[in-house]
């Protein structure tokens, strides 16, 4: 659609001559309406699932991470109750090892990392002045696989297959020789989901920041530098 653009020349100071582009604002109303419609969040469950706004996704990361923080805190409390006195039988050894591992894994991979990610997703676009992260759908995808990883871990825990070899799955304790069954696999699967979410979030939010620093442009999800070369 052609815009009504006029060029004019004016003097800021006598020794400087600058040009400015004068745009008739009224001519943008149609484009603005189209864009607002495009960017408007969808409603209902489908809208919630397809939401890609960085503030919404960032807030979801933060809220979800705090939920896992509470679960990790409950696990810590259970461990402290067990350790409150010698020869306590509040938790049996197997359950204690599972809770010990769940606590560490939750705090590190389902709270500490995601909450930092959520902060970044929420604040980085605001800080650098972009409407959204470079890859909004990738960002939303990252959040959902993070949630899926956390739910998977806790479902496995509640059916008695929670990991029990420490928060970073101590080797060789987590190997088949000493940890038969699927418990180490449960932990590894959760980590795969969690780290995939982290990578997706990192890529989604870091590229606009790179662009601001590096002078490139985001073009339909592809990064191009000032000369138009794909990055």
């Amino acid at each position: 659609m052609p815009f009504n653009i006029q060029h004019s020349t004016f003097l800021v100071r006598p020794e400087l001559q600058m040009s400015e582009v004068i745009i008739d604002q009224s001519d943008f109303s149609e484009e603005r309406a189209t864009l607002e419609k495009t960017w408007a969040p969808a409603r209902g469950v489908i809208g919630w699932l397809t939401e890609t706004g960085h503030k919404q996704i960032g807030m979801r990361y933060i809220v979800t991470a705090f939920c896992f923080f509470v679960l990790g805190g409950i696990e810590a409390a259970l461990m402290r109750i067990q350790l409150a006195k010698a020869e306590n039988n509040f938790l049996n050894p197997d359950l204690y090892n599972q809770i010990f591992t769940m606590h560490g894994s939750t705090m590190m991979f389902l709270f500490a990392v995601p909450i930092m990610l959520g902060m970044g997703v929420y604040f980085v676009p605001l800080m650098i002045g972009t409407r959204n992260v470079a890859f909004p759908k990738l960002n939303a995808y990252g959040y959902f696989i993070y949630v899926a990883g956390g739910i998977f871990l806790y479902v496995m825990f509640f059916i008695g297959a929670g990991p029990d070899a420490g928060w970073f799955s101590y080797v060789p304790l987590s190997g088949p020789t000493f940890d038969a069954g699927k418990r180490a696999d449960t932990w590894a699967q959760m980590i795969t989901f969690s780290f995939q979410a982290a990578r997706a979030g990192d890529v989604a939010q870091s590229h606009p920041a790179v662009c601001v620093v590096d002078g490139c442009d985001v073009d339909h999800g592809h990064l191009r530098d000032a000369g138009g070369n794909a990055r």
């Binding site: 050894p93 204690y96 090892n97 029990d164 420490g166 304790l173 940890d179």
Partner: peptide, 10 residues
């Protein structure tokens, strides 16, 4: 002092 399995505490 290193988690070594089910009976590490013992």
């Amino acid at each position: 002092a290193e988690l070594c399995g089910l009976q590490h505490a013992h």
